[in-house]
Design a protein around this nucleic acid. Structure first.
Length: 289
DNA sequence: AACTCCAGCAACCGCGTTGTC
DNA sequence: GGACAACGCGGTTGCTGGAGT
């Protein structure tokens, strides 16, 4: 049995709003306010609409100081920067753009900005991804790329494949040096803090030579954007070792299993399972880009 | 002119969160 | 602290109009 409907759908009008309805809603709210109760508002305002629908219409279209139309380059950059750091939290992004609504920004991103960025930044071929990861490995005995989670100095020549999610990397092309440094830092931070995300790609690791843990859980990347490209994990095989990696997306895990994996990873004092511990700044973790 | 395709956008849906009793 | 109601948000749907054939 599903959730109870918020209103009697048989008795409410749906679809596009007429100018008369807009006028009624606007007049009522300007005179009476919302009264903190959207459910009761349509009846009081003489509208045969669902309260949710009224709220959406007001917030996205009727309320004062709403701006519609073309987004500026500056707004593009702000959206990209925030999307790279916090993902698709449109209401938060909207709060940074005066007069823009979350719905507007979401639509703009999905229909225009994303394509614009994709066109700017074609994804690297898989073999380049692997070669880059392999050549920068800190351990000659392994093509796994290890790095510390202390923030190294920003260097624009560093291949961002190893440091960022694809969507963060994509944003780089739009930004000036200062913004790139900020995004770079956010990318580094996200490798540690993203344990709370509900869209993480995880991997089992068994019998790693460099790490004594028998079985751990690795954060590969923060993929809160939900973009399909960020769900693709480059599997880096070592020539010397034949580590067994089982790559699974979050959706493949049951909640119990996820909780178990995370808790066992966090609490295992006898291993180097430290990927969720922000305090262990000297330790290393594995990165798959 | 008629039809199809598709981008853009407004609106809806349903889930998680917050507030109230 | 549990139950319920309402809000807020992000993902999705579906309508519309313009471009292409």
């Amino acid at each position: 049995m599903g959730r109870a409907p918020c209103c009697d759908k048989a008795n409410v009008k749906r679809g596009p709003w007429s100018p008369e309805e807009d006028s009624k809603l606007k007049d009522y709210i300007e005179k009476q306010g919302t009264g903190g109760n959207w459910i009761a508002l349509p009846h009081k305002a003489g509208l045969r609409r669902c309260g949710k629908s009224c709220r959406l219409r007001w917030l996205n279209y009727l309320r004062p100081n709403i701006r519609h139309g073309d987004f500026s380059e500056e707004e593009d950059k702000i959206i990209c920067s925030l999307f790279a750091s916090i993902g698709s939290r449109w209401s938060v992004i909207a709060a940074h753009l005066h007069g823009r609504t979350d719905n507007d920004i979401k639509n703009y991103w999905n229909t225009k900005l994303k394509k614009k960025l994709m066109a700017t930044m074609a994804p690297p071929p898989p073999h380049q991804l692997l070669a880059a990861a392999s050549s920068q490995s800190s351990s000659p005995s392994s093509s796994h790329y290890y790095m510390t989670n202390r923030l190294p100095p920003y260097n624009s020549s560093i291949s961002s494949n190893q440091l960022m999610t694809p969507h963060q990397e994509m944003m780089m092309t739009m930004m000036d040096q200062q913004q790139q440094q900020l995004l770079y830092k956010e990318a580094m931070d996200s490798l540690v803090i993203s344990a709370n995300s509900n869209k993480l790609i995880m991997s089992h690791q068994e019998d790693s030579q460099e790490q004594s843990t028998n079985k751990g859980i690795m954060l590969l990347s923060d993929v809160r954007s939900g973009s399909s490209t960020t769900r693709t994990v480059a599997r880096v095989k070592t020539e010397q070792h034949d580590h067994h990696h089982e790559e699974r997306s979050m959706e493949d895990y049951g909640m119990d299993e996820i909780n178990h994996l995370i808790s066992s990873s966090c609490t295992s004092s006898s291993s180097n399972s430290l990927w969720f511990d922000e305090n262990k700044t000297e330790d290393t973790f594995m990165l798959y880009y």
